[in-house]
């Protein structure tokens, strides 16, 4: 499975290759490295579309904050998508597919978190996770 951003890479320079996606490899998106073996123009368009990182600010509105159950719901939603999903609180970045990492955010009610999504189904997962936050984790996300 595609495992998401790797720590240490500049965020703006992240991309993963259609060639290597099955091996869960994240590569820096320097323009000269984009072609990666395939010269088919369609591949390059696909790569370029996946280089886009979609960002949205989400707010914890439920009074108990981002405790175990909300983190579990976020992780379950993120795991159902191929795209990488990162939730950040300041310098603390959590892979949203990992319950343990999400719990390290310790986000109380009123906390703003940055949601960053990249991948082929980025918009779907962006909407699904945003919906979880906006309903205070009280109901299942809307079917997309």
């Amino acid at each position: 499975m595609y495992s998401g951003f790797k720590a240490g890479f500049p965020r703006e320079a992240l991309i993963y290759s259609t060639v290597f996606r099955h091996f869960s490899i994240v590569l820096p998106a320097y323009p000269q490295t984009v072609s990666l073996g395939s010269k088919h123009p369609r591949d390059e368009r696909f790569i370029m579309s996946e280089a886009v990182i979609h960002r949205r600010t989400v707010t914890v509105i439920n009074d108990q904050g981002l405790h175990f159950r909300p983190c579990q719901l976020i992780a379950l939603a993120a795991q159902q998508h191929q795209s990488s999903v990162i939730l950040s609180r300041g310098k603390t970045r959590a892979d949203a597919k990992s319950l343990l990492e999400l719990l390290t955010l310790a986000a109380e009610q009123g906390t703003n978190l940055e949601l960053e999504v990249a991948g082929p189904d980025a918009i779907d997962v962006l909407n699904e996770v945003t919906e979880l936050f906006s309903c205070g984790f009280q109901s299942p996300p809307r079917a997309v």
């Binding site: 108990q64 904050g65 405790h67 990492e101 719990l103 390290t104 310790a106 986000a107 109380e108 009610q109």
Partner: peptide, 13 residues
């Protein structure tokens, strides 16, 4: 709830 979150954060970390 903040103490509960910080406890979970600490253990998870």
């Amino acid at each position: 709830p903040g103490d509960h979150l910080r406890g979970l954060e600490n253990i998870s970390r």
